[in-house]
């Protein structure tokens, strides 16, 4: 085992221990915080596939996070009022069932990622950063101006959606559900990185010309990676909306894109557990410093600056030593 896998094991242990302790002492608030870590980490796992493996600096992942959230909001609000989403040409009703909502969130965000990716990947470098940012903002302004689902004020869903066999209103059950989804995404992400597709994607990040020379089109690799990345972040958006039982255009704002990126960077770009470590650190800081000062984002900014300037591998990179898999 490498030092990184020991760190990952330690993190997993901590992430299980803390909620177990909170559950046994009846601290529902801590359970909610842990759920939030898992869901935000999931969004980061999605971005990490594009950013860490593919080297695609997407500053617009809030678009997919928001689409996932709005998929949940639209389906659940129609189910809440028993008002079908459309009745022509086919009848589509709202639903409160999480598996269906997740499926819709994943499909909708993949389609969006396919469209945004197909256009954005024609550019590279700063232009790619900017065009992804612009697509995110486009959806942000669209949802602000779209009154059907709350417009600028957002929309509340009164009862959390249901999952067969579980009572999702019990914090610990929703927590376990989120952990399982995160675990599956991590497993998928680890397998993806070692699969031929992941290796080709990594190679395309390091030297696109050589990959092209051996007969693989980097554009298609990147597009597929972008779609997978967007769909996982979209799923996280649906879960996040369910955690808060609220959706609003803020989910689409560029601050959300920046924060998802912060999770990945604080933890370590391209590291399997990077987003998990980053999201945990972010929530920990928000919780600890937020209690000390309402201006806690000054400290977050200073920390982020320090990580970028001096500790370039993020938390895991600093602890695990030199970069192993990613150059």
């Amino acid at each position: 085992m490498t030092r990184e896998s020991y760190i990952n094991a330690g993190l997993t242990f901590l992430l299980v221990l803390v909620p177990f302790w909170a559950w046994s002492t009846g601290q529902a608030y801590i359970l909610t915080l842990c759920t939030k870590v898992a869901i935000l980490a999931l969004a980061g796992v999605g971005l990490n596939i594009a950013l860490g493996l593919g080297g695609l600096v997407s500053f617009g992942h809030a678009a997919f996070f928001g689409i996932g959230g709005y998929a949940m909001g639209i389906l659940a609000s129609h189910a809440q009022t028993f008002d079908p989403i459309m009745d022509w040409p086919i009848l589509i009703e709202g639903t409160k069932s999480m598996p269906v909502i997740w499926l819709v969130a994943v499909v909708a965000s993949s389609l969006a990622a396919l469209l945004i990716g197909a256009l954005s990947l024609r550019t590279s470098g700063v232009y790619f950063i900017m065009i992804t940012l612009a697509f995110g903002q486009m959806l942000y302004y669209f949802t602000i101006g779209w009154p059907a689902y709350g417009g600028e004020d957002g929309l509340s869903i009164y009862v959390r959606n249901s999952f067969p066999g579980l009572n999702t209103l019990v914090p610990v059950q929703f927590l376990i559900l989120s952990y399982v989804v995160l675990g599956l995404a991590l497993l998928f992400s680890a397998r993806l990185a070692r699969a031929p597709f992941g290796l080709a994607l990594t190679a395309a990040r390091q030297n696109a010309d050589r990959v092209e020379t051996v007969g693989i089109a980097p554009y298609r690799l990147r597009l597929v990676a972008f779609v997978i990345s967007g769909s996982i972040t979209g799923l996280a958006g649906a879960l996040f909306a369910d955690l808060n039982r609220f959706i609003s255009p803020t989910m689409f704002s560029w601050h959300t894109s920046g924060e998802i990126m912060i999770f990945v960077i604080l933890g370590g770009v391209g590291r399997l557990y990077g987003p998990v470590a980053g999201a945990a650190l972010f929530i920990l800081l928000e919780h600890l410093l937020g209690g000390v000062s309402e201006y806690w984002k000054i400290f977050l900014g200073a920390l982020l600056l320090a990580v970028v300037l001096f500790a370039r591998g993020g938390l895991i990179g600093t602890l695990a030593g030199r970069e192993v898999a990613h150059g």
């Binding site: 600096v57 470098g125 950063i129 960077i265 984002k297 900014g301 200073a302 982020l304 600056l305 300037l309």
Partner: peptide, 23 residues
């Protein structure tokens, strides 16, 4: 540095300057 580092470091500056001004 690469553009990713620049984006993040200047995003961090936004957090510091905005919250500092609010303070």
């Amino acid at each position: 540095r690469d553009h990713l580092d620049q984006v993040l470091a200047t995003f961090a500056l936004i957090l510091i300057l905005s919250e500092g001004t609010r303070w």
